Computed example of a mutant assay.
Amino acid sequence: MAPSLEEPLESATSQLVAPEPEHCPGPETQQAGQGDACQTCPNKEICASAPKGPDPDIPAITERLLDVKHKILVLSGKGGVGKSTLTGLLAHAFANNPDSAIGVLDLDLTGPSMPKMLGVESETIHVSSAGWSPVYVLDNLSLMSIQFMLPNRDDAIIWRGAKKNGLIKQFLRDVDWGDLDFLLCDTPPGTSDEHLSVVQLLKESGIDGAVVVTTPQEVALLDVRREIQFCRKTGIKILGLVENMSGFVCPKCTFESQIFQATTGGGRALAKEMGIPFLGSVPLDPRIGMACDYGESFFDSYADSPACKALKGVVRGLAEQLKVDSQQVLFEEEP
């Protein structure tokens, strides 16, 4: 039996009679029903009587994720920088080691793209006594996404924050991941409800850190600066910055063109300015887009491409930040 999106999601806001006003302190906070924005809100009495304090499901989430060794968030302040694409590339790179078990959690609820990129778009999830079963892309690579729960793949998710947060909680609390070496969480752009929820819910079980993705131009770097500040304010370690689409390398002549010109030094200069590790630059390759469209592994199909070689450098840098053996993360045959 597959879970239904029509099932009620547990939330302290499920009985609200009106939309949350601007500057709402949150129905589960100590100031709920008492703030200035609450005085004229129809939800005042409901929020004032709602349970306060730490989320009671956090211990259950911590227990569920005890066998997940490393939890990594993939973040970007701006949409369109290839964050989900990089998540899929990292997942395939990690899964190249047959002794590693990898999970991908698609937290971009309104724009779930991981099922398409990993080639399991038509699959569904099932419920057992152990919980929700993720979809297996490979024997050692599993995925959970809201896409698997939609009756039609073109259906739009038009939800307020409370319902989004409820589903994120269910993904963390109810999914039976089993023993994982790495859990990659693909997040939506920006610093919104989804980010705050996953940080709060994983606080006790521990987040190893975040990989921040950007492109070279200043427009993207402006938003990435805000993402870095979000990580610092919420106590998330920044494992490193990846500059995606750093240049276009022609597959035939290998000449590199700068499609997104770096006017202020790009990702490398930003990493130095902000005092965070720079994991590397991944060039733009049209075959990456084709691999995502067909749900294939670019990492396996074009192992000798400049983009794949750059990606291997990113993985080695990530392994160094996680203090694990790079050979364990990125399995390579001895020469």
Rank of each mutant, 00 (worst) to 15 (best):
A210L: 04
P216S: 15
R225H: 03
P216Y: 15
I207L: 13
G161C: 12
A162T: 12
H195P: 00
T215P: 00
W177C: 04
E243V: 00
F248V: 04
F248R: 07
D139L: 08
K203W: 00
F182P: 00
G209F: 01
F255R: 15
L143A: 12
D139R: 05
E243M: 04
R173P: 00
L221W: 12
L150Q: 05
L183E: 13
M149S: 06
F230E: 11
S133M: 12
T214D: 03
H195D: 00
M149N: 02
Q170M: 04
L239I: 15
D176H: 14
R232P: 02
V224Q: 03
H195G: 01
F182R: 10
T215L: 04
L180I: 09
S145G: 11
M144F: 13
M144S: 10
G209Y: 01
L201A: 10
E204L: 05
L183W: 08
K169L: 09
G161H: 03
Q170R: 14
S133L: 13
S192H: 07
T214N: 07
H195C: 02
F230T: 12
D155M: 09
L138Y: 12
R160K: 10
V175R: 04
R225M: 06
R153D: 08
G235T: 04
R160F: 13
F248P: 01
K252A: 01
V213L: 12
L150V: 12
L143W: 10
K203M: 09
C250W: 01
S133K: 14
C185L: 09
S145M: 04
G190C: 10
L183H: 13
L138M: 14
D179G: 03
N140A: 01
I207Q: 12
M144V: 14
F148V: 13
